[in-house]
Design a protein around this nucleic acid. Structure first.
Lengths: 137, 137
DNA sequence: TCAAAATTTGATAACCATTACTAATTGAGC
DNA sequence: GCTCAATTAGTAATGGTTATCAAATTTTGA
């Protein structure tokens, strides 16, 4: 990880463990869920440190920050190209790897904004919430 | 508007004016910006009333709610089908009417979620922020 | 190797958008 | 007009996130 950090940036244990923990799960944890994970290995870390480093890691491109829908921010240790689906009921996020490629869709649009990109996010109902909703009929 | 309200729902002046003000602007105001607009006609309205009614109007489909974990919610009085573009710098939102049609893209995806829809949101830099950034080179 | 300089941390307070609460008010049907 | 449930204004509470700052840690360089 050292090689990704900029000049004047240090590879602290906190920083390293936050990244490792985030890369070890396939959920898309919120900042306080990351805090919970990291505290198992480093019980005295503070929540502020987690927030600060998630921001640093995200600006370095080492993790993805998901902030394009309601609720808390979520973080993804998987930086490979893929999309996300968000549960309308509980907010949980899953991965979508086989969506049709729409890259370039942002080109040639009519807008006074300078268009730089787009985010495609799916919505649905997660397995857990499906199971909870079915019985009520 | 009366016809859209459900049984046991009242058409109050507050509710009517909030909708009228939101439909009269092409910006995508935050709740407190709507509050500012409505207070010009109804100075004693409370912020809580604005929040509550924006939620009601949105659940009735009379306005669109644009949610983003990174910033404040925004509201759109235009319910016709169109996409949005968000300024990466200041968070301001604009409309995109000529994006290629990707309806149906959510069908046939491989996921344990029950897929119900998608949101396509563009990102860019608004005219105001472009003007502010250019000079610094 | 040691001291000075710089970054980072932990702990806590502050911030701010949003929601909850409650007594008073008001719209809508009779 | 009267009644009553829905709604409001005003205010407090909530919760995620950010800011602050002294202490700790790491780096630098003499």
């Amino acid at each position: 990880m050292k090689e990704f950090l900029g000049k004047d940036m240090r590879l602290t244990n906190q920083r390293r463990i936050i990244l490792e923990e985030l890369q070890s799960v396939s959920t898309h944890p919120t900042a306080d869920e990351v805090y919970g994970l990291v505290r198992q290995k480093m019980p005295r870390i503070s929540l502020g440190t987690v927030y600060r480093n998630l921001e640093v890691l995200s600006s370095l491109g080492l993790v993805r920050k998901l902030e394009n829908a309601a609720g808390q921010k979520r973080f993804d240790g998987d930086t490979s190209p893929h999309h996300h689906i968000r549960c309308e009921v509980c907010g949980k996020v899953g991965d979508i790897y086989d969506a049709p490629d729409i890259s370039g869709i942002e080109k040639g649009l009519h807008s006074d904004f300078q268009v730089t990109g787009f985010i495609l996010e799916f919505s649905g109902i997660c397995p857990h919430c499906q199971a909870r909703q079915q019985p009520e009929q």
